[in-house]
Nucleic acid binder design. Structure first.
Lengths: 208, 208
DNA sequence: TAGATTGTTAATCGATTAACAATC
DNA sequence: TAGATTGTTAATCGATTAACAATC
């Protein structure tokens, strides 16, 4: 009976959330779909349609309570849950993510770093010790990790995914440029940098 | 008269390209839409439809010549052009991108690093000297930069974008979590990490 | 009351999927 | 020839846009 929510809608909710957070910081009490749309280059109709998927949030003739709408979108996205992340593969990208400051306001904390390279095991990054990825099970359990972040080379990514799932993570955020196979009950999001960059190249090529 | 190509199609082309590159490395001479689809979890019909947008690439009853199709998709995407990148903001993320090894096979080279922090100006990252972002115009011109990569904090991103465009870059790859305004002839691609992570949180929340 | 703005239904648009003739 | 597979047209599905009644 639960209606399926489109991925396009889900992908816009974080934008609404962020803009509401900024509006809250400006002490703006109320915002209209018009103003929200103006700040994001999204039509107000689209915003109202997206929100309608989840219920009623505003007041006719008035607009949306900034604080309340932010709160409710945050709850829909599960941002109140304080998810715990482990980063597997502490190379340049993994290290950058371990230091990424934009996770905290969304309720994500990096609690573990794992790598297979013995030369860096024991080092600290942003105050977190790099542990041996051969101790995956133990670390994931002890640190109560919810989400595995894969930043290993593509050839190793599927193996890491399998081990993460066996160790009990509930979701995977994959930066390795490869298609991963995971069970249907484990949400997987791919962050493929080469898509965006190639799309940019495409548009620049057409522009010429 | 030129038909508009959907962004969804453009975003799949890099996946086809990558898979063809791997198939080429396996010395596979011919590939069917079926096999390509199997490797990417995309239906063969979708692949044939995407390719049909750009012309005819295969042979009926046979399949696609791996090398040729790879070449032609690369040309459509503009990956043969050897784009030159400048990274603005050499923090953790900018530094990771300066070291990112997956750019080279796609025809992108990082040729300049710029930062405003005098403490790191003059340092080298991956063999590239960090230069003063106040010398933007000069550096962009001298290094013949095509693409500006924005990895500065959100509040500075619009100013950096404006300066990059004034300096003559032809496209912008933005990692700052903010909506940028750019002229319509400057392609802009946003890489917003919080969208993917929030979407993962959403799906994990529904899974419970 | 008049003006503003939501929530929702209907219309349109676009993308995906299905089907199949063409042909290697 | 029979089997395989593309390229393309038609059907379906889903998302966006438009319109407007409800109401603050």
């Amino acid at each position: 009976m639960k209606k399926t929510i489109s991925q396009a809608t889900i992908d816009r909710l974080p934008l609404y959330f962020r803009t509401l957070r900024l509006a809250e910081a400006e002490d703006l009490p109320i915002i209209s779909s018009d103003e929200l749309g103006r700040r994001l280059d999204i039509t107000p109709e689209q915003i109202r349609k997206d929100l309608a998927t989840f219920g009623q949030f505003g007041r006719k003739g008035i607009g949306y309570d900034v604080r309340e709408l932010k709160e409710r979108i945050g709850n829909i996205l599960g941002l109140h849950k304080n998810w715990r992340l482990a980063i597997i593969g502490v190379g340049h990208l993994g290290g950058a993510l371990a230091n990424y400051v934009n996770f905290a306001p969304l309720g994500f904390s990096v609690v573990a770093l794992l790598d297979i390279n013995e030369k860096i095991i024991g080092n600290e990054v942003n105050g977190i010790e790099i542990e041996d990825s051969r101790r995956m099970n133990e670390v994931i359990a002890a640190k109560e990790v919810d989400i595995g972040v894969i930043t290993v080379p593509a050839v190793e990514a599927q193996g890491v995914a399998d081990k993460l799932i066996a160790a009990g993570v509930k979701g995977i955020w994959n930066f390795a440029p490869i298609k991963l196979s995971v069970p249907p009950n484990i949400p997987l999001v791919n962050e493929d940098l080469s898509i965006g960059l190639s799309a940019l190249s495409y548009h620049m090529t057409q522009e010429d």
